[in-house]
């Protein structure tokens, strides 16, 4: 069997096991919540019969193991239950909100890469020029700034003072009006991209530094390749291997950054659904959002690992597992 296929199968198995473990951890953590989820359904002073009915409705009258079996089997059927508060099914609601969070995350991430790749390479290649060090210093400062504060500052400058963009909110008709939807996402996208690019620049820079000191680059230069040519033909592919694994992790934290940024700009995305769910003790919503976002994080990690294998023939041919 070709090694890449066996790797794919093994990595797929790890992914499935991780999803099951994540579901189990989620189940346990949410069951640690004090109080009965049924309390969210009944009003204060409800009689025991009503409470019992509510417990039957949410399933908290069953034993923990029975609840777990029910939880897993409904997950397998892509049934995430219905909200306690709005009584709407959880999964379609998540789908509606992903229509904001996913474009937000992907656009921010694309912008961050577009900023970080050239700047990171410049910072490494021109390390002893003033602009090379400036990039390094600024990116160092960037990782010390919380994402929500950048959001607030951008709102202050571009929404309050210059009135160029809305300070928050999303058009009620969503992507049916693409221009309004897009304008609403401009500041949030820039906010996330600034923070993400700060940490990406540092990884790109150090990956490029490793390439610059390598023998193969010197050999290419000795064989007559001009510096930019040598860097593009030999450097990019080599430097991209460590960067891709970082990008996988960063994409996951971008998704999370979106939770906070959605609050700054009051966007009705996945993050605000989670926060609202926590405030209202709406268990099915909280559980659903956490499960779907964990799923996305694990999936991104899977794809990043796979991309790394495809790009680096040394990894591709090695039969060893995910050892490092």
């Amino acid at each position: 069997m070709p090694t890449i296929l066996s790797y794919l199968l093994r990595r797929l198995a790890i992914l499935l096991v991780s999803i099951v473990i994540a579901a189990a951890v989620l189940f346990v953590l949410l069951r640690l919540l004090p109080g009965d989820p049924a309390n969210a359904l009944v009003s204060v002073g409800a009689d025991p019969e009503q409470i019992e009915a509510a417990r039957r409705q949410v399933g908290s009258d069953l034993s923990l193991s029975q609840q777990f079996v029910r939880f897993v089997s409904s997950l397998a059927r892509f049934d995430l239950g219905t909200s306690f508060v709005s009584h709407a099914p959880v999964l379609p609601e998540i789908g509606k909100r992903l229509a904001i969070t996913v474009p937000l995350t992907l656009m921010a991430f694309g912008l961050a890469i577009a900023i970080a790749l050239p700047l990171g390479i410049i910072a490494a290649v021109r390390a002893n020029r003033w602009y090379g060090s400036l990039i390094s210093v600024v990116s160092q400062l960037g990782i010390a700034v919380p994402v929500f504060w950048i959001g607030i500052l951008l709102v202050t400058v571009f929404a309050v003072n210059l009135r160029l963009f809305p300070s928050g909110g999303f058009p009620p008709r969503g992507w049916a009006r693409p221009d309004a939807a897009f304008t609403a996402l401009v500041l949030p996208v820039i906010t996330i991209a600034i923070v993400m690019s700060a940490s990406l620049i540092r990884y790109v820079r150090s990956a490029t530094q490793d390439v610059l000191g390598s023998d193969y680059l010197r050999t290419a230069r000795a064989l007559g390749a001009r510096f930019p040519e040598a860097l593009i033909r030999h450097g990019i592919r080599n430097a991209s291997v460590p960067v891709i694994s970082i990008i996988g992790i960063e994409l996951a934290s971008t998704l999370l950054g979106a939770v906070v940024v959605e609050r700054v700009f009051s966007l009705p995305g996945l993050g605000s659904m989670l926060l609202l769910g926590i405030e209202q003790r709406d268990y099915p919503n909280v559980q659903g959002v956490l499960f779907i976002s964990t799923l996305l994080v694990l999936l991104v990690g899977f794809l990043a690992d796979l991309a790394q294998r495809l790009i680096d023939p040394r990894l591709r041919d090695r039969s060893g597992g995910a050892s490092r």
Partner: peptide
Amino acid sequence: AAGLDILIAFPTLLLAMLIVASSD
């Protein structure tokens, strides 16, 4: 090691939010 990898893939803030939410 595998368990730690999964935990690390889970962003710090989300984990912290979950713990805060599940406490009183």
